[in-house]
Nucleic acid binder design. Structure first.
Lengths: 133, 133
DNA sequence: AATCATTACTTGCAAATTGCAAGTTAATCC
DNA sequence: GGATTAACTTGCAATTTGCAAGTAATGATT
Protein backbone atom coordinates (compact mmCIF):
# COMPACT_ATOMS: atom_id res chain seq x y z
CA UNK A 1 0.00 0.00 0.00
CA UNK A 2 1.43 3.34 -0.99
CA UNK A 3 -1.79 5.30 -1.47
CA UNK A 4 -2.07 8.63 0.29
CA UNK A 5 1.69 9.04 0.50
CA UNK A 6 2.47 12.71 0.77
CA UNK A 7 5.42 12.64 -1.59
CA UNK A 8 5.01 15.20 -4.37
CA UNK A 9 6.63 14.84 -7.79
CA UNK A 10 6.47 18.62 -8.06
CA UNK A 11 4.38 21.54 -6.85
CA UNK A 12 2.42 21.62 -10.10
CA UNK A 13 -1.34 21.38 -9.68
CA UNK A 14 -1.64 19.21 -12.78
CA UNK A 15 0.95 16.72 -11.54
CA UNK A 16 -0.65 16.49 -8.12
CA UNK A 17 -4.12 16.09 -9.57
CA UNK A 18 -2.83 13.29 -11.80
CA UNK A 19 -1.36 11.55 -8.77
CA UNK A 20 -4.91 11.25 -7.48
CA UNK A 21 -6.92 10.56 -10.61
CA UNK A 22 -4.40 9.82 -13.34
CA UNK A 23 -5.51 6.37 -14.41
CA UNK A 24 -8.16 4.74 -16.58
CA UNK A 25 -10.74 4.02 -13.88
CA UNK A 26 -10.89 6.59 -11.10
CA UNK A 27 -12.78 9.27 -13.02
CA UNK A 28 -15.27 6.70 -14.27
CA UNK A 29 -16.24 5.89 -10.70
CA UNK A 30 -16.59 9.60 -10.06
CA UNK A 31 -18.70 9.93 -13.22
CA UNK A 32 -20.99 7.19 -11.91
CA UNK A 33 -21.30 8.99 -8.59
CA UNK A 34 -22.36 12.14 -10.47
CA UNK A 35 -24.96 10.01 -12.23
CA UNK A 36 -26.47 9.03 -8.90
CA UNK A 37 -24.88 5.63 -8.44
CA UNK A 38 -23.96 4.93 -4.85
CA UNK A 39 -23.27 1.22 -4.31
CA UNK A 40 -20.49 -1.19 -5.19
CA UNK A 41 -22.71 -3.33 -7.36
CA UNK A 42 -24.03 -0.32 -9.24
CA UNK A 43 -20.48 0.73 -10.16
CA UNK A 44 -19.80 -2.78 -11.40
CA UNK A 45 -22.76 -2.67 -13.75
CA UNK A 46 -21.47 0.27 -15.78
CA UNK A 47 -20.70 -0.56 -19.41
CA UNK A 48 -16.91 -0.39 -18.99
CA UNK A 49 -17.01 -3.37 -16.62
CA UNK A 50 -14.44 -2.36 -14.05
CA UNK A 51 -12.63 -5.35 -12.50
CA UNK A 52 -13.85 -5.93 -8.96
CA UNK A 53 -10.45 -5.70 -7.29
CA UNK A 54 -9.71 -2.43 -9.09
CA UNK A 55 -13.05 -1.03 -7.97
CA UNK A 56 -12.35 -1.95 -4.35
CA UNK A 57 -8.92 -0.35 -4.58
CA UNK A 58 -10.20 2.87 -6.17
CA UNK A 59 -12.98 3.27 -3.63
CA UNK A 60 -10.41 2.98 -0.83
CA UNK A 61 -8.14 5.52 -2.48
CA UNK A 62 -10.97 7.95 -3.15
CA UNK A 63 -12.02 7.67 0.46
CA UNK A 64 -8.49 8.20 1.73
CA UNK A 65 -8.22 11.28 -0.49
CA UNK A 66 -11.53 12.55 0.89
CA UNK A 67 -13.21 12.61 -2.50
CA UNK A 68 -15.92 10.25 -1.28
CA UNK A 69 -17.37 9.03 2.00
CA UNK A 70 -18.61 5.56 2.82
CA UNK A 71 -21.69 4.99 4.94
CA UNK A 72 -23.56 1.85 5.88
CA UNK A 73 -27.19 2.13 4.91
CA UNK A 74 -28.31 -1.07 6.56
CA UNK A 75 -27.25 -3.64 9.14
CA UNK A 76 -27.76 -7.42 8.89
CA UNK A 77 -26.13 -7.70 6.47
CA UNK A 78 -24.21 -4.46 6.52
CA UNK A 79 -24.29 -2.67 3.17
CA UNK A 80 -22.63 0.53 2.08
CA UNK A 81 -23.23 3.58 -0.04
CA UNK A 82 -20.61 5.94 -1.34
CA UNK A 83 -21.14 9.66 -1.86
CA UNK A 84 -19.10 12.50 -3.27
CA UNK A 85 -17.70 15.04 -0.85
CA UNK A 86 -17.47 18.72 -1.78
CA UNK A 87 -13.93 18.01 -2.95
CA UNK A 88 -15.26 15.24 -5.15
CA UNK A 89 -18.15 17.29 -6.48
CA UNK A 90 -15.69 20.02 -7.37
CA UNK A 91 -14.34 17.72 -10.10
CA UNK A 92 -17.42 18.40 -12.24
CA UNK A 93 -15.57 20.94 -14.45
CA UNK A 94 -12.82 18.41 -15.14
CA UNK A 95 -15.35 15.82 -16.27
CA UNK A 96 -17.25 18.41 -18.28
CA UNK A 97 -14.11 19.52 -20.09
CA UNK A 98 -13.30 15.90 -20.94
CA UNK A 99 -16.79 15.27 -22.27
CA UNK A 100 -16.69 18.37 -24.47
CA UNK A 101 -13.27 17.40 -25.80
CA UNK A 102 -14.23 13.77 -26.33
CA UNK A 103 -17.44 14.65 -28.11
CA UNK A 104 -15.60 17.02 -30.41
CA UNK A 105 -12.52 14.94 -31.21
CA UNK A 106 -13.29 11.26 -30.67
CA UNK A 107 -15.79 9.93 -33.19
CA UNK A 108 -18.37 7.60 -31.72
CA UNK A 109 -18.50 9.16 -28.27
CA UNK A 110 -21.79 10.42 -27.01
CA UNK A 111 -23.04 13.09 -24.66
CA UNK A 112 -23.31 12.64 -20.92
CA UNK A 113 -27.10 12.63 -21.12
CA UNK A 114 -27.12 9.73 -23.54
CA UNK A 115 -24.53 7.90 -21.48
CA UNK A 116 -26.67 8.44 -18.41
CA UNK A 117 -29.63 6.84 -20.16
CA UNK A 118 -27.52 3.89 -21.25
CA UNK A 119 -26.10 3.45 -17.81
CA UNK A 120 -29.54 3.51 -16.27
CA UNK A 121 -30.64 1.06 -18.93
CA UNK A 122 -27.89 -1.34 -17.82
CA UNK A 123 -29.19 -0.94 -14.28
CA UNK A 124 -32.74 -1.92 -14.98
CA UNK A 125 -32.27 -5.62 -15.55
CA UNK A 126 -35.27 -6.34 -13.39
CA UNK A 127 -37.91 -3.99 -14.76
CA UNK A 128 -40.26 -5.37 -17.37
CA UNK A 129 -40.87 -2.57 -19.85
CA UNK A 130 -37.62 -1.22 -21.28
CA UNK A 131 -37.63 1.58 -23.76
CA UNK A 132 -34.91 1.47 -26.42
CA UNK A 133 -31.89 3.63 -25.73
CA UNK B 1 2.17 -2.57 -29.12
CA UNK B 2 -1.53 -2.02 -28.64
CA UNK B 3 -1.69 1.77 -28.87
CA UNK B 4 -4.23 3.28 -31.24
CA UNK B 5 -6.41 0.20 -31.12
CA UNK B 6 -9.92 1.21 -31.98
CA UNK B 7 -11.57 -0.94 -29.33
CA UNK B 8 -13.88 1.13 -27.16
CA UNK B 9 -14.73 0.22 -23.58
CA UNK B 10 -17.96 2.15 -24.04
CA UNK B 11 -19.32 5.10 -26.01
CA UNK B 12 -18.79 7.44 -23.05
CA UNK B 13 -16.70 10.50 -23.85
CA UNK B 14 -15.01 10.32 -20.44
CA UNK B 15 -13.99 6.69 -20.90
CA UNK B 16 -12.62 7.32 -24.38
CA UNK B 17 -10.76 10.42 -23.26
CA UNK B 18 -9.21 8.42 -20.43
CA UNK B 19 -8.09 5.76 -22.88
CA UNK B 20 -5.94 8.45 -24.49
CA UNK B 21 -4.71 10.44 -21.53
CA UNK B 22 -5.61 8.45 -18.45
CA UNK B 23 -2.20 8.00 -16.86
CA UNK B 24 0.26 9.94 -14.74
CA UNK B 25 2.45 11.34 -17.53
CA UNK B 26 0.61 12.14 -20.75
CA UNK B 27 -1.00 15.37 -19.58
CA UNK B 28 2.31 16.57 -18.16
CA UNK B 29 3.88 16.35 -21.61
CA UNK B 30 0.92 18.28 -22.97
CA UNK B 31 1.31 20.84 -20.18
CA UNK B 32 4.95 21.30 -21.20
CA UNK B 33 3.93 21.79 -24.82
CA UNK B 34 1.51 24.51 -23.69
CA UNK B 35 4.44 26.11 -21.87
CA UNK B 36 6.37 26.31 -25.12
CA UNK B 37 8.61 23.28 -24.74
CA UNK B 38 9.15 21.48 -27.99
CA UNK B 39 12.07 19.05 -27.78
CA UNK B 40 12.70 15.69 -26.15
CA UNK B 41 15.39 17.02 -23.87
CA UNK B 42 13.22 19.92 -22.75
CA UNK B 43 10.48 17.53 -21.65
CA UNK B 44 13.05 15.54 -19.71
CA UNK B 45 14.14 18.59 -17.76
CA UNK B 46 10.73 19.23 -16.18
CA UNK B 47 10.69 18.86 -12.39
CA UNK B 48 8.72 15.59 -12.41
CA UNK B 49 11.61 13.85 -14.18
CA UNK B 50 9.75 11.60 -16.59
CA UNK B 51 11.63 8.35 -17.33
CA UNK B 52 13.12 8.47 -20.81
CA UNK B 53 11.45 5.30 -22.09
CA UNK B 54 8.05 6.53 -20.87
CA UNK B 55 8.59 9.86 -22.61
CA UNK B 56 9.46 8.14 -25.90
CA UNK B 57 6.38 5.96 -25.58
CA UNK B 58 4.04 8.86 -24.78
CA UNK B 59 5.32 10.98 -27.65
CA UNK B 60 4.62 8.09 -30.03
CA UNK B 61 1.14 7.62 -28.65
CA UNK B 62 0.35 11.32 -28.77
CA UNK B 63 1.50 11.43 -32.35
CA UNK B 64 -0.54 8.37 -33.30
CA UNK B 65 -3.58 10.00 -31.68
CA UNK B 66 -2.92 13.21 -33.64
CA UNK B 67 -2.51 15.31 -30.53
CA UNK B 68 0.99 16.34 -31.57
CA UNK B 69 3.12 16.41 -34.72
CA UNK B 70 6.83 15.72 -35.01
CA UNK B 71 9.05 17.72 -37.32
CA UNK B 72 12.77 17.71 -37.86
CA UNK B 73 14.21 21.19 -37.35
CA UNK B 74 17.72 20.38 -38.51
CA UNK B 75 19.72 17.80 -40.43
CA UNK B 76 23.22 16.56 -39.52
CA UNK B 77 22.37 15.43 -36.96
CA UNK B 78 18.63 15.25 -37.43
CA UNK B 79 16.74 16.75 -34.49
CA UNK B 80 13.05 16.98 -33.81
CA UNK B 81 10.47 19.33 -32.36
CA UNK B 82 7.01 18.40 -31.24
CA UNK B 83 3.99 20.68 -31.48
CA UNK B 84 0.38 20.52 -30.40
CA UNK B 85 -2.23 20.03 -33.09
CA UNK B 86 -5.62 21.72 -32.83
CA UNK B 87 -6.87 18.54 -31.18
CA UNK B 88 -4.06 18.83 -28.64
CA UNK B 89 -4.58 22.53 -28.06
CA UNK B 90 -8.25 21.84 -27.42
CA UNK B 91 -7.23 20.12 -24.19
CA UNK B 92 -6.54 23.49 -22.57
CA UNK B 93 -9.88 23.51 -20.69
CA UNK B 94 -9.12 20.07 -19.23
CA UNK B 95 -5.76 21.27 -17.92
CA UNK B 96 -7.31 24.49 -16.65
CA UNK B 97 -10.00 22.63 -14.75
CA UNK B 98 -7.36 20.41 -13.15
CA UNK B 99 -5.26 23.39 -12.12
CA UNK B 100 -8.22 25.15 -10.54
CA UNK B 101 -9.20 22.00 -8.67
CA UNK B 102 -5.66 21.23 -7.58
CA UNK B 103 -5.05 24.75 -6.36
CA UNK B 104 -8.25 24.70 -4.36
CA UNK B 105 -8.04 21.22 -2.84
CA UNK B 106 -4.43 20.07 -2.77
CA UNK B 107 -2.31 22.08 -0.33
CA UNK B 108 1.11 22.95 -1.63
CA UNK B 109 0.20 23.14 -5.31
CA UNK B 110 0.86 26.34 -7.14
CA UNK B 111 -0.56 28.21 -10.07
CA UNK B 112 0.38 27.56 -13.68
CA UNK B 113 2.22 30.86 -13.89
CA UNK B 114 4.46 29.99 -10.99
CA UNK B 115 5.01 26.50 -12.40
CA UNK B 116 5.94 28.03 -15.71
CA UNK B 117 8.57 30.18 -14.03
CA UNK B 118 9.99 27.19 -12.19
CA UNK B 119 10.06 25.11 -15.33
CA UNK B 120 11.85 27.87 -17.21
CA UNK B 121 14.23 28.18 -14.28
CA UNK B 122 15.10 24.49 -14.64
CA UNK B 123 15.74 25.16 -18.30
CA UNK B 124 18.24 27.93 -17.84
CA UNK B 125 21.14 25.95 -16.47
CA UNK B 126 23.47 27.83 -18.74
CA UNK B 127 22.53 31.46 -18.18
CA UNK B 128 24.52 33.43 -15.64
CA UNK B 129 22.04 35.72 -13.91
CA UNK B 130 19.18 33.74 -12.42
CA UNK B 131 16.42 35.47 -10.56
CA UNK B 132 14.98 33.58 -7.60
CA UNK B 133 11.76 31.73 -8.31
C1' DA C 1 43.30 13.58 -32.77
C1' DA C 2 41.19 12.16 -28.78
C1' DT C 3 38.02 13.12 -25.37
C1' DC C 4 33.86 15.40 -23.80
C1' DA C 5 29.17 16.91 -24.36
C1' DT C 6 24.58 17.01 -26.37
C1' DT C 7 20.35 15.17 -28.49
C1' DA C 8 17.17 11.71 -29.07
C1' DC C 9 16.44 7.91 -28.25
C1' DT C 10 16.64 2.15 -27.22
C1' DT C 11 17.41 -1.89 -24.28
C1' DG C 12 17.40 -4.85 -20.17
C1' DC C 13 15.33 -6.07 -16.23
C1' DA C 14 13.18 -5.85 -11.55
C1' DA C 15 9.18 -4.10 -9.35
C1' DA C 16 4.57 -2.56 -9.34
C1' DT C 17 0.01 -2.54 -11.25
C1' DT C 18 -3.71 -4.56 -13.89
C1' DG C 19 -7.11 -7.81 -15.21
C1' DC C 20 -9.45 -12.14 -15.11
C1' DA C 21 -11.52 -15.82 -12.55
C1' DA C 22 -12.84 -17.87 -8.56
C1' DG C 23 -13.77 -17.87 -3.71
C1' DT C 24 -15.88 -15.83 0.72
C1' DT C 25 -19.33 -14.14 4.05
C1' DA C 26 -23.75 -12.89 5.42
C1' DA C 27 -28.43 -12.76 4.80
C1' DT C 28 -32.71 -12.92 2.25
C1' DC C 29 -35.89 -15.07 -1.39
C1' DC C 30 -38.42 -18.92 -3.48
C1' DG D 1 -32.59 -25.97 1.33
C1' DG D 2 -30.83 -24.25 -2.91
C1' DA D 3 -30.43 -19.97 -5.49
C1' DT D 4 -29.51 -15.12 -5.36
C1' DT D 5 -27.58 -10.67 -4.05
C1' DA D 6 -24.12 -7.50 -2.06
C1' DA D 7 -19.61 -6.39 -1.12
C1' DC D 8 -15.74 -7.70 -1.24
C1' DT D 9 -10.91 -10.74 -1.10
C1' DT D 10 -7.48 -13.85 -3.10
C1' DG D 11 -4.45 -15.98 -6.53
C1' DC D 12 -1.93 -15.47 -10.37
C1' DA D 13 -0.54 -14.37 -15.20
C1' DA D 14 0.19 -10.53 -18.14
C1' DT D 15 1.13 -5.86 -18.86
C1' DT D 16 3.18 -1.50 -17.58
C1' DT D 17 6.42 1.23 -15.04
C1' DG D 18 10.75 2.95 -13.56
C1' DC D 19 15.62 2.91 -13.12
C1' DA D 20 20.06 2.46 -15.14
C1' DA D 21 22.87 1.87 -18.79
C1' DG D 22 23.88 1.86 -23.63
C1' DT D 23 23.85 3.76 -28.55
C1' DA D 24 24.43 6.78 -32.71
C1' DA D 25 25.39 10.95 -34.77
C1' DT D 26 27.62 15.20 -34.56
C1' DG D 27 29.87 19.36 -32.70
C1' DA D 28 32.96 21.51 -29.35
C1' DT D 29 37.19 21.39 -26.50
C1' DT D 30 41.84 20.35 -25.15
Amino acid sequence: MKANSKFKRSACAVANTLDILGDKWTLLVIRDLFFGKTTYSEFQKSPEKIPTNILADRLKRLESENLITRQSYQQRPVRYTYQLTDKGKALAPVLEAMVIWGNQYIPGTISLNRIKKIINHYEQKKTTDQKPV
